[in-house]
Design a binder for these strands. Structure first.
Lengths: 195, 195
DNA sequence: CTTTAAAATGACCGAACGGTCATATAATGC
DNA sequence: GCATTATATGACCGTTCGGTCATTTTAAAG
């Protein structure tokens, strides 16, 4: 990795949590300068403008979160274990895997009506999550862990939606109680569909 | 209502959808000037600064949405009707009741780590929704519509979380299919708990 | 109608914004 | 070690930001 690539990566890593916490619009290039201790000119050597940097930061946040999740999932043996691991991974909304909370929720709501590029990145991230869940369920059905008539795609959507909704509720109240109701409910449904 | 109060209200009504669509940070006073066709000085007669106007716009968005919902709910006879009406009211995320989507989601994620006042407004809005749902369920249990062992508070949380999560998914994909899975699932659970 | 207070105006302010560029420095290939 | 290219710097630019204020216009009260 050349010096330039190293610096570019360094900027992204410093910028990513700031964008996730403050949002794209509310984050200034000065914020990134302060965090990286780099000059303004240097930032523009590696990113042609703020939008490009913001996009790179969005990508990085989503990727880091996905990698952490995949790392946990790779240690699972059964499909049920995978689903429980997924739920547990996101179960603490007050102290979530990424500072600032879920980037799909944060960037998604901000980009919604204003930034189609970021919106599409978030959409892909959501689909990735749902497909992960669906694969685990299908795997569990195929190997006899789960009831064969369970609708994998539908439950994948339900899990993702409930976790994101619970995330919102618990972050707004700075209290994880409601998120625990969500995780408990989801785990009960999984148990009901286990053989 | 005096002229001043009228103008203040007029500004709020014009500003509210802009804040809901663009977010607080990305909305400028110039945006509001353009929408209201009022001078900058006039804005500051009625609002001491942008934060105060933004708070008023957040309040207004949440109130308008709540009023629309309560209006629909007031026409319901049974508890089950109330729950179905709640779900149907939010069932179209691509063309939601408020332009820009759910203000609790929009302002909540933006305010999360940066604006404790707005965050608390959103928190109150979430609690209001959950309590509405819980009351309907409790009412249905008490009048024999629903199974007596149904956990009203828990299901209220589940409904709200799933609707918000479904809202996010469907808005990011600009497609309501996933939201329909959510509503179908919720209605099924309600039917299962009906007597 | 007159008086007085409230509301509306737009020029103006300093600060912060995103972005540029000549210059200086450091890394890289020969 | 030298030449060349890539990277880093910070002063600088035009624009927009949130916000102020003297002045004018309008509404409200007597």
């Amino acid at each position: 990795m050349t010096k330039g690539e190293e610096t570019r990566q360094f900027i992204i890593e410093k910028a990513a949590p700031i964008f996730n916490i403050k949002g794209i619009a509310a984050t200034s290039m000065s914020d990134i300068m302060e965090a990286t201790r780099l000059s303004k000119g240097s930032m523009y050597v590696h990113f042609e403008n703020k939008d490009v940097l913001a996009c790179a930061a969005v990508d990085h946040n989503i990727k880091v979160l996905g990698d952490k999740l995949l790392s946990k999932l790779s240690k699972c043996k059964t499909a049920k274990e995978e689903l429980f691991t997924y739920i547990d991974f996101f179960s603490n909304a007050v102290h979530p895997p990424l500072t600032g909370g879920c980037p799909l929720l944060n960037f998604g709501t901000e980009a919604d009506d204003t930034n189609p590029i970021v919106k599409e990145k978030v959409n892909k991230g959501i689909n990735f999550n749902q497909q992960l869940l669906e694969k685990s369920i299908t795997k569990g059905i195929n190997n006899g862990e789960f009831k064969p008539n369970w609708n994998a795609a539908d439950f994948a959507t339900v899990v993702f939606a409930m976790m994101e909704g619970g995330h919102l509720i618990s972050r707004m109240s700075s209290n994880n109680d409601k998120m625990q109701i969500i995780t408990k409910t989801l785990k009960n449904i999984i148990e009901e569909n286990s053989l």
